[in-house]
Amino acid sequence: MGLFDKLVTLFGLRKQEVKVLVVGLNNSGKTTVLNHFKSEDDKSTEIVPTVGFNIEKFKNQNVGFTALDMSGQGRYRDLWEFYYKDCQGIIFVVDSSDRLRLAVVRHELDLLLQHPDVSSRALPILFLANKMDQRDALSSVKIASGLGLDRILDKPWHICASNAITGEGLEEGVTWFTQQVRQVGQPGNRPNRTGPLASGKNN
């Protein structure tokens, strides 16, 4: 077995399988986002607040995703960290119309970034500024600055606006994400920031 094969096996990429953690406050739309990616047969017609977590599987561009859809209610947020260790990427969903709780989102994000299982790794993070269709929704640029995303220097991240009900913006996000995971483990991989705000500062 060559070095490359070994690395590939090591990161569980032989069959292009990736495990992602989907987090964000309650009611931000995590379950709705994942429901969008599921095949027609598996789709739930009705979405209720998640209690604890749920595991969903779907495929995108030949990559098999195992997504852990965590509950965002305050009572369960402490439990996210049990699952940081063995994930290969994070999708962080934000309700862009929930201006009041943006500070809460920032606090939860800080906790996540400081956690030893996350801070030490170059995990790709996809931010979804969800519910873009709402009238009072903040733009993705505003969300990125509100959360202080430019502080994240050691991880590839990307933010895009989305509407989980129609699926708008989700393809763009997940395509970026898939690329990132493919790159992980390959020599010369570097943290790579993209997105409206990041691209402006990144050269």
Partner: peptide, 12 residues
């Protein structure tokens, strides 16, 4: 502790 974490998985 925190065994309610599996609630949604089980209801599913």
């Amino acid at each position: 502790e925190d065994v309610i974490i599996v609630t949604s998985s089980l209801t599913k």
